[in-house]
């Protein structure tokens, strides 16, 4: 077994773990964390596919690698939006409780 295959199997487990956490957790923040864990697993799968595609003197296929870089940045901005939504939700709820 090569290192790439090993990390591929690792990524498969990470996706399953992240999905489990995203479904089972009650707190929204925990779901966001779990969803990020799932996403990192998916990116890792891409990395394994890139690593297998060595050629032309490169350690891996640069196309999936570039896609993963784009993906990591977009995942971060989505996480920031999700966290902002969550904090706003709590602020609105706290204001409603104070009114009652």
């Amino acid at each position: 077994m090569t290192g790439a295959t090993l990390f591929g199997l690792c990524a498969a487990v990470l996706v399953g773990l992240g999905l489990y956490g995203a479904i089972v957790h009650h707190l929204i923040l925990r779901r966001i964390v779990a969803f990020n864990l799932l996403g990192a697993g998916a990116f890792l799968l891409f990395g394994v596919v890139a690593r297998r595609g060595t050629g032309a003197g490169m350690g891996g296929d640069p196309v999936p690698q570039a896609l993963v870089i784009t993906g990591i940045v977009v995942a971060f901005s989505a996480t920031a939006l999700a966290v902002a939504l969550l904090l706003r939700l709590h602020a609105v709820r706290a204001a409603e409780d104070a009114d009652r």
Binding site: G3, A4, F43, G47, T54, M58, Q65, V68, I69
Partner: peptide, 11 residues
């Protein structure tokens, strides 16, 4: 560290 092992220093 895994990305380094997968020869993807940019990532």
């Amino acid at each position: 560290l895994v990305w380094m092992r997968l020869a993807a220093p940019d990532v």
